[in-house]
Design a protein around this nucleic acid. Structure first.
Length: 986
RNA sequence: GGGCCCGUAGCUUAGCAUGGUUAGAGCGCUCGGCUGAUAACCGGGAGGUCCUGGGUUCAAAUCCCAGCGGGCCCA
């Protein structure tokens, strides 16, 4: 046994452990140990490979790591491959910044697609490396050398293979759709990319009037996007609303009656008169004159469409109830337009500028067209009011440009047709906590088709090829098929850089085929991870053995993202769900419960925390702070508290290893089994508590209630081990060598620590390893704590009755302390007698524990009474609580005083020994100067003094007689001065 | 606007599925103790409208309804 070093400084200790793991190849050995066990496929949700890790990603990986380590110790053959999401717009935007590019034109003209993609790849791989190191520093054990990357050919082929299944089932369709579009990034954005990107902005608030045809008056419309008016094709009213003809200043306006008071106020109408009312549906078909016919000549072709139509989406809360409808520029406009056969006229290009079709506005950026349109309306007398309004408007999640809505042709996965199967198969998934299922189902019910195509560069190329001659399309499902189609034989990287130059030969007409230039939405990449990461379909062996994955865990935002996307792809490819069990975890917030953001300056860097407090402390804190599925409010005070708990554990460890090595205790020579007859009640209690701890920790990890496991460990260390057991056995460690009582205490303490370490190993892997290294005396034991098995509870050591008794003993000890405090009786001073009146049956429960209690109470005699019995007369300090009474005798006999005095002196001499820097076993000579009466009182306890302070050569004398050779100090004890001298011997 | 989750001492939280002690801890505060586990540690005490308002019940932190505040997601 090695005595542990006095202090434990987690950051340095952890670095040492990590280096040692590295040198000894411990991780590899742990993986090897798992082989042959039952396969357990854990799937890592791939974090985005850009930037560095934050507290949320750290939590995510720490949670995974604890479970991975636990399953491994349970003997499972755990797959623990990390994954990285490598494609997508965020990386493109950062690379654009790095290269000083501003638009797609810049990319294509200035650096070229090939170099741009190379830079993106470099960026991604750079960050994979960076983030890998950061995760490693937190003690996360995964196959860092063999991650799955969404940018490899193999992975891309898996995506193509999956798309081919969709294509075969007719679930992949090209469709004209109005979608969010970023004019800077020049790409479509999916719904989930727009989430949370609504900001307050000031926009025009424009009221315009459209002249009615075939009757007097105007339609009054309102818009915040005047630039969309050139594409206006209809005006929409709600069929069930009442519309009013309102006369103002000699003109008649048509608008919803319910909106009239508000509109009148906004337009400053003082005097107006309702001259007629009509139901919305009766307005259908009413024709009007487009306000910008001269400016936008194309509009003349649409003159037949310029009518009032009906739609349920019209609301009274804003606008006039007459909704300007531009099917090419608005999602709802488009949908209602489809019903009326309106074309999706969209005279704006990908860069947000008007095309030739925009007539007078051609070349203008949409926002620049706003004032131009306003002026044109004013010139024609069609402007009613041009003001501004502050409202919430969507922006690009990467570059923060305000988005526009544009009708474009995109490729969709028809999720709508998969929904029934999705919902049915989802029943097989176990959701933790269970209410996430409801959330998931709601998400599926409300979701639309999945827009898969992106008009960008850094992504998995859409493997769809179209013949320029006959229009035939082919979906290429693998590299092999690509070679067959294009005749390409050389090395290929399956990104746009290589693919864009290829041409195919049409199997139908022999014409030239070109690939649709789009790339895929990155969420499609990660949605196939459960098989793509196994090398499927190129390799089938792993897939057949492992798929579907047994367990995944990610943040709650992934419910409608990764959890959802995975099910879609999997159900479409295999008709099955890709995972069996999902644990959803919360978000990392600051101590006030606010989101962490750079602008608030409240971002916590987990790597920094680990560097300062230690990764284990961070891990234990995060895991114990709250249930995984609730948000973590990161609280530095609580973090430090965990740090202190770790320190207490270390102190216990120092205590144990110091004394055990001093006594050359060897658990092999003194196994617990042989010492069973010598166990005292506190020993049997400790053994029982360990079983309870094993049970709690196991249940917590099995049920996803990781916090319960972590809390059980911490509370065991503080409450049971440190504050109770170690304190109780301390006197026993001072008795002579080889005494069975001492050996029993050692054996129990060793057992408790050994079990505790194994339970602790997944949570605090470095600390457990360090402690294990000190405790491991048997070279035949595995070299690392992580090579041990998870302990199982030993029922024969469990004694619930004893645990109850000990709980009572603890409560009584606290009461005794209270009674002593009331009478000013220090705990160190023994008292003659403690009398305890108990409740029914409790005395029975405490039978056999009298000696233990006397030790805890520090009393010479103990009297346990039943409920009806009275405390005998005498001088006592008493406390009553919970139907019990504790009485502590106050009288101090000379005998007791001597003992107390001896203890006081021992304590002070120990301090002096320490001041002299003496080792625990070194012998000393002592001279103790005091009054004659004190010397007489002390007489019977000199042997005790010699033993405790390791004195050889003790002299009692008067204070003045104490010599000067040695370490001398004066002490005040109970109002009297003592002069003590210690001298090193020999 | 909709769905789901959370709201308990100054702070972090247990208890809530199955209603029934005086709502239990830790931090902080305060008073005291300990000093061969000591850059620690231990004990006592003060501190609570259990978010608000209704309802069910003999009884509500716990169940139901409405509202308020926060989070995630969807519109």
């Amino acid at each position: 046994m090695k005595p542990a070093s006095k202090f434990y400084r987690p950051p340095e200790a952890e670095k040492r452990v990590q280096r040692w793991w590295e040198e000894k190849g411990i991780y590899r050995k742990v993986r090897e140990k798992g082989r042959g066990g039952k396969p357990w496929y854990f799937l890592d949700g791939p974090p985005y490979a850009s930037g560095s890790i934050h507290l949320g990603t750290a939590w995510n990986k720490i949670l995974k790591d604890v479970l991975l380590r636990y399953w491994t110790m349970r003997g499972l053959d755990v797959r623990r491959q990390p994954g990285w999401d490598c494609h997508g717009l965020p990386i493109e935007v950062m690379v654009e910044e790095r290269l000083g590019l501003r638009s797609k034109k810049d990319i294509e003209r200035e650096v070229g697609v090939e170099r741009f993609i190379e830079e993106c790849r470099r960026w991604a791989l750079e960050h994979v490396r960076l983030m890998t190191d950061q995760f490693k520093s937190l003690g996360v054990w995964m196959d860092w050398e063999e991650p799955y990357l969404t940018l490899t050919n193999e992975y891309i082929e898996a995506a193509w293979w999956t798309l081919k299944r969709a294509h075969e089932k007719g679930l992949l369709r090209k469709d004209l759709r109005v979608i969010h579009w970023c004019p800077r990034c020049e790409t479509a954005l999916a719904e989930h990319e727009v989430r949370g990107e609504y900001y307050e902005v000031r926009d025009p608030s424009l009221y315009a009037r459209f002249r009615l045809k075939g009757e007097e008056g105007y339609l009054l419309i309102w818009t915040t996007t005047p630039w969309t008016l050139p594409a206006n094709l209809a005006v929409c009213v709600h069929p069930d609303l009442t519309y009013a003809r309102v006369e103002v200043g000699g003109e008649v306006y048509l608008l919803a009656e319910g909106a009239l008071p508000r509109v009148a106020k906004e337009l400053g109408w003082r005097e107006y008169r309702v001259v007629g009312r009509v139901e919305g549906r009766r307005l259908e078909g009413l024709r009007y004159e487009h306000p910008l016919l001269e400016e936008v000549p194309r509009q003349r072709e649409f003159a037949e469409h310029h009518r009032v139509i009906c739609g349920e989406h019209v609301v009274l809360e804003e606008g006039t109830g007459c909704v300007h409808t531009a099917p090419g520029f608005g999602e709802e406009d488009f949908l209602v337009g489809e019903r009326y056969g309106l074309p999706a006229f969209s005279p704006v290009g990908p860069d947000g500028r008007f095309t030739e079709e925009g007539g007078k506005y051609a070349g203008l950026f949409v926002k620049e067209a706003d004032p131009a349109v306003l002026e044109d309306l004013r010139g024609k007398g069609l402007l009613v009011k041009g003001g501004t309004v502050v409202h919430s408007y969507p922006h690009c999640w990467r570059c923060k440009t305000p988005l526009i809505f544009r009708a474009t042709e995109q490729w969709f996965l028809r999720v709508s047709e998969l929904k029934p199967l999705l919902l049915e198969k989802n029943r097989e998934v176990e959701w933790i906590p269970s209410w996430v299922r409801e959330r998931y189902v709601n998400g599926v019910l409300s979701v639309g088709d999945w827009c898969l195509s992106r008009q960008r560069y850094w992504g998995i190329p859409l493997p769809l090829w179209v013949c320029g001659s006959c229009g035939r399309s082919e979906l290429v499902g693998s590299l092999e098929e690509l070679r067959a189609l294009t005749g390409e034989k050389g090395e290929l990287d399956l990104h746009r850089s290589d693919l864009d130059r290829l041409r195919g030969r049409c199997p139908g007409c022999g014409g030239e085929m070109r690939r649709v230039p789009d790339v895929l939405d990155v969420w499609f990449d990660s949605s196939i991870a459960s098989w793509a990461s196994l090398g499927f379909p190129q390799r089938r062996e792993l897939f057949e053995r492992l798929w579907p994955s047994a367990f995944i865990t990610e943040g709650e935002d992934q419910v409608t993202k990764w959890f959802y996307a995975q099910q879609v792809s999997s159900v479409l490819a295999f008709g099955k769900v890709p995972y069996r069990r999902v644990l959803t975890h919360g978000f990392a917030l600051d101590a006030q419960g606010r989101k962490m953001s750079k602008s608030l300056g409240n971002v916590i860097d987990p790597v920094e925390v680990a560097r300062e407090h230690g990764a284990d402390v961070l891990r234990l804190y995060i895991l114990s702070a709250n249930p995984p599925w609730e948000d973590l409010k990161f609280n530095p005070t609580e973090l430090r508290r965990v740090g202190r708990a770790v320190n207490v554990l270390w102190n216990v460890h120092v205590f144990a290893t110091t004394y055990m090595s001093l006594d050359s205790f060897d658990p092999r020579r003194h196994p617990l089994e042989g010492l069973l007859p010598h166990l005292l009640p506190e020993d049997r209690w400790m053994l029982s508590r360990v079983q309870g701890l094993v049970e709690e920790a196991t249940a917590g990890l099995e049920g996803g209630e990781v916090h319960r496991a972590a809390r059980a460990l911490l509370s065991f260390v503080l409450e049971d081990l440190s504050r109770w057991y170690v304190r109780a056995i301390r006197p026993r460690t001072w008795v002579e060598k080889e005494h069975p009582s001492k050996l029993a205490a050692y054996a129990v303490l060793y057992y408790a620590l050994e079990r505790l370490l194994r339970l602790l190993a997944p949570f605090a892997p470095h600390l457990a390893e360090t402690m294990y290294a000190d405790l491991r005396v048997d070279p035949s034991l595995p070299e690392s704590v992580h090579l041990l098995d998870w302990p199982l509870p030993e029922d024969r050591l469990r004694d619930m009755r004893l645990e109850r008794a000990m709980e009572l003993a603890r409560a009584l000890t606290e009461r005794v302390a209270e009674a002593r405090q009331g009478a000013g009786l220090k705990l160190r001073w023994p008292v003659e007698e403690v009398v305890v009146r108990l409740q029914e049956g409790e005395a029975e429960l405490l039978r056999g524990m009298e000696d233990f209690l006397k030790g805890r109470f520090n009393c010479k005699r103990l009297l346990l009474l039943g409920p009806g019995e009275e405390v005998p007369p005498g001088e006592y300090s008493t406390v009553e609580a919970e139907g019990r009474k504790v009485a502590v005798s106050r009288a101090l006999s000379p005998e007791l005083r001597g003992e107390a005095l001896a203890r006081e002196l021992v304590r002070r001499l120990q301090v002096m020994r320490k001041e002299m820097g003496l080792g625990m076993e070194e012998r000393v000579e002592a001279e103790l100067g005091m009054g004659e009466e004190d010397a007489r009182t002390l007489e019977p306890h000199l042997e005790y003094l010699r033993r405790e302070v390791r004195i050889e050569g003790l002299r009692l004398c008067r204070r003045e007689e104490v010599g000067k050779e040695g370490h001398v100090r004066d002490w005040e004890v109970e109002g009297e001065t003592f002069r003590l001298l210690l001298r090193r011997r020999g």
